[in-house]
Design a protein around this nucleic acid. Structure first.
Lengths: 209, 209, 209, 209
DNA sequence: CATGAATGAGTTTTCATTCAT
DNA sequence: GATGAATGAAAACTCATTCAT
């Protein structure tokens, strides 16, 4: 973004999106308040004035991303009719989230890696909503005998795990290509849509009777 | 470990295992040399004397874990006869690795999250060996018409992604239970073996003709 | 005070009384403009608009308290006839001042402690007037052979020192009681009047022939 | 002190005496860690390494001064025989403390002024020991009918209040002289010994039957 | 090998003060 | 008069790294 475009957004918006990028890039501990302020073209003290300390900023950023993820998911799933359609809606909704917030995967991964040390309470609630939705899909599909018996959590972790890994390993895989030369390691189209279709296919095969 | 037991290991060993724990817990940026030295019961300067700076220590720790993972995997897979057995061997070998090095998942996740910023070259080579093995399993299974067509990388990321997520989300899930109370979110036996069996089942269903 | 009552006073009045409290509580360096503004229910910039910077605010606050102290003292003493009565008038006037401005003792103590670094000129003049009054009382009493020879300054410091210590050590003494439990350390009635009577008695005994 | 002399003391000693001076001069909030480090000719980080944060440093400094004050006092008083001699011993011991630690008065005054906000627990215990000593002197003197009835706390505050005021108002009084010119306001010899003798005389007159 | 002390360059956070509206 | 936002300089505290012994 150019400086001019930046100025069109409010300070708070600029702070939040800069923070999102930098937290995604460097993690909570690695992120530097100075850098966030600089990228947001904002005086450092403004971050404290508008939002609070580093932890509060992180919480705010995460919450903003999570809250609408959860609501969108429940809505989409609710609109779908059969369990299979609901499952597809769930998978695509997750995919869409990662599409729209490509910075979420690294943040998520780091959070889990550190035991959720910096995880704000509000985000935890959003996660619970998501898990509830997955649970009900699985339960319903099982009752109607279209799905085998699976723990919904395992299913969810498989979907999220696979997707976030596909997205976030890209830079490392690129480095592997540079080193190895011999094989093509990146199947996806630039936007990741192809492998996400694969995920849908595989998950459905895994779970359908 | 008690102080006495600690003393039985060499300084270097103590440093490396302390570093592994702390890097797993806090990530590269979050880890503190002071803390590593304290946990290793070693003078801080000794780390620099024996191993080098923080980055070198990290590389050393990662390499030590990775190198034998790759060889064990190729050996086990080679011993299995049919594609299905090879696939099972691969999945179990990965599971065994995470079993034996429970600190690997968080480290891996963080590494990918940060684009492999701290990834040492040697580790990259180990990863390539693993991918080669997976590739050959898939190719062979497809040729023999027992597997559907999948990109081996997607398969691998699904296996690794699911497993590492199952392991590393445990603390966060625990917190969710504390918050929500309403549902049991932890299906696994303490060592995570149950869900890993699930993973095997699901992956086979997903991929088998 | 309730917000409604606050609004009845002018902004300046609210600022000044808020500032008095906070300076008394935290000292010049410890006081925060933000806090003063908040307590005065006034926008921070208004303090600068109406009064000036932190130092100016402090000077203003101090002066407001001191100016009438000095005049009241001289008046009361003038009205008394004999040296003993004058001395009593002086002691009671000082006591009344501290009664009316309970925030004065801490401010005074801090000022002296820091060598009067923030002492405004105007206040110095008020202090000189007070010392003059004490001097004349002592001189007259000595001439009439009712008082022993004392340096008026020592007398004044004894009176002021004792009184301000009695008042301002109360919180600390309370903490001592909490820690020690064994003895009652607070002789005064809540308003401090009892010990001030003691002071009068002791000072008179000390100085009378 | 010259740089050479400084080097003869250990870092910790240098830190502590620098801190004492600066805390006395500027109070807890006003003191700057940077300045303390500079005066101690020590790297700032060394303060944290050896002692801890600002509050810990303050506690350490205060405790060092207080602990021996209390013990010296009890010893001296114990050696004296009659109540009057004990009282004199007490007064002189306090005077000696202020003589030896001229930086104590300002620190004390500020502490009381701020309600003991930064008062470390250990110091509180030392204060209690002192108060106990004064109590027993008064009680004994009263029983033997040589003293009138006084609350020991009022006595103590009179002694300490007067002494600390005499010492700590000197700079302000000097400024008054500069402003007023007309009167000599400083009766004491440079070391404050003369007025302290006055204090002894006055207090004895006040309290003796 | 081992240790305690030292260093210097950050890093987060705070705060008095000012500006635009 | 009044307000919310902005600024810049400093303050406390941290940490990887090195040194002297």
């Amino acid at each position: 973004m150019k400086a001019q475009e930046l100025k069109k957004q409010s300070s708070v918006e600029r702070i939040l999106s800069a923070a999102l990028e930098i937290f995604a890039d460097s993690g909570f501990e690695g992120a530097r308040i100075d850098e966030i302020a600089a990228r947001a073209a904002v005086n450092k003290a403004m971050i404290y004035y508008h939002i609070g300390d580093k932890r509060a900023l992180y919480a705010r950023v995460l919450h903003d991303v999570f809250s609408d993820t959860a609501t969108r998911l429940t809505q989409r799933v609710a609109r779908a009719q059969t369990p299979v359609k609901k499952l597809k809606a769930y998978i695509r909704s997750m995919a869409a989230t990662f599409e729209q917030h490509p910075l979420l995967p690294p943040i998520l991964m780091r959070e889990f890696a550190s035991g959720g040390r910096n995880f704000p309470e509000t985000v935890a609630e959003d996660m619970l909503r998501i898990l509830d939705t997955v649970s009900s899909i699985v339960k319903q599909g099982h009752k109607k005998k279209v799905f085998i018996h699976v723990h919904p959590l395992v299913l969810h972790l498989m979907v999220v795990g696979t997707m976030t890994y596909i997205r976030s390993t890209r830079p490392v895989r690129q480095r592997l290509v540079d080193i190895a030369e011999k094989e093509v390691l990146l199947p996806e189209s630039e936007d990741g849509s192809a492998p996400l279709a694969d995920v849908e296919k595989l998950v459905l095969r895994a779970i359908k009777r």
